[in-house]
């Protein structure tokens, strides 16, 4: 039992003069601070709602939760959430895949890049929101137009990041593989693509946030379901409490999806995310 540390040891080792130093693990500290941050937000919300403005314009937190409970219980909100999420998922996955494939080709084939880059540079300034009117004419107000708009917002972001990543695949790494005996296809698949993963992931995270931002206007302007539609409908009926439920839902969803994405990256792609500094 010699190695068991004496629980009084810190106190006897360092004279504290009656002061108790407050020590905590970094994790519990950050959890505590995050909790405090949310608590402050709720207090401020309550203050704005009841003191500064009025409860109709800004419904107080408790009122919003009271509205939320039946919406959650009846499955109403869940239906809207899942509809919006499927739209984001389909558009995001197809947009990312297309962005990665074409981005990799543009990064590798100089001629293709020189021909297509001016077009991409012009088109990427058309935000998904700007494309809503024409998307509705092309694809109607059904699912296809939402898929298209999310695809549109995702594609260019992922594409530009992927191309940048492919260009930055270290020449030394490619040459080293070449003299070890790798052929051009192997250098491409086993060196260049894995080397660009950190850039692709960054592009996808930015595109994920953009998808969340573009699904709402798309649903507000041209849909009969989804979170955006819920916002629009509640606004027409002046139901500010329901609007707040929808807004809160978007915040929580975005946060959860980004966490899931990060966990996926940490579990599956972690080894591709590390850079080795020089020397």
């Amino acid at each position: 039992m010699v190695n068991v540390p004496d629980s009084r040891a810190p106190f006897s080792a360092a004279p504290l003069r009656g002061k108790h130093t407050w020590t905590m693990s970094p994790v519990s500290r950050s959890v505590l601070l995050a909790g405090a941050s949310i608590l402050i937000a709720f207090v401020a919300w309550q203050f704005l709602s009841t003191v500064l403005f009025n409860p109709f314009l800004i419904p107080p937190p408790l009122e919003v939760f009271r509205t939320a409970i039946p919406m959650v219980a009846s499955g109403e909100i869940l239906a809207d959430v899942s509809i919006s999420m499927v739209r984001v998922l389909v558009g995001f996955v197809t947009g990312s895949l297309a962005g990665i494939i074409i981005g990799v080709l543009l990064g590798r084939i100089r001629l293709l890049h020189d021909v297509l880059d001016p077009i991409i540079e012009l088109l990427r300034y058309l935000s998904p929101t700007a494309m809503i009117p024409i998307a509705v004419i092309w694809f109607g107000i059904g699912e296809l137009s939402k898929y298209f708009l999310i695809f549109w917002g995702t594609f260019f972001i992922v594409l530009i990041n992927t191309t940048a990543g492919v260009w930055r695949a270290p020449i030394a790494r490619q040459r080293a593989a070449e003299c070890l005996g790798a052929n051009r296809f192997q250098i491409f698949m086993l060196i260049v693509v894995p080397s660009s993963v950190p850039y692709i992931v960054t592009g996808m995270r930015v595109a994920m946030a953009s998808s969340f931002m573009s699904i709402i206007p798309a649903e507000i302007l041209a849909a009969d379901s989804g979170i955006g539609y819920l916002l629009q409908k509640s606004s027409m009926l002046l139901q500010t409490n329901r609007i707040f439920v929808a807004l809160l839902t978007i915040c929580v969803l975005g946060f959860i999806v980004d966490r899931i994405f990060r966990i996926f990256v940490d579990k599956v792609l972690a080894r591709y995310m590390s850079f080795v500094s020089q020397t």
């Binding site: 270290p170 020449i171 030394a172 790494r173 040459r175 080293a176 060196i191 894995p194 993963v197 080894r271 591709y272 590390s274 850079f275 080795v276 500094s277 020089q278 020397t279």
Partner: peptide, 9 residues
Amino acid sequence: DAGSALLPW
């Protein structure tokens, strides 16, 4: 620069 030449993953 071995860090570049090796495969960090």
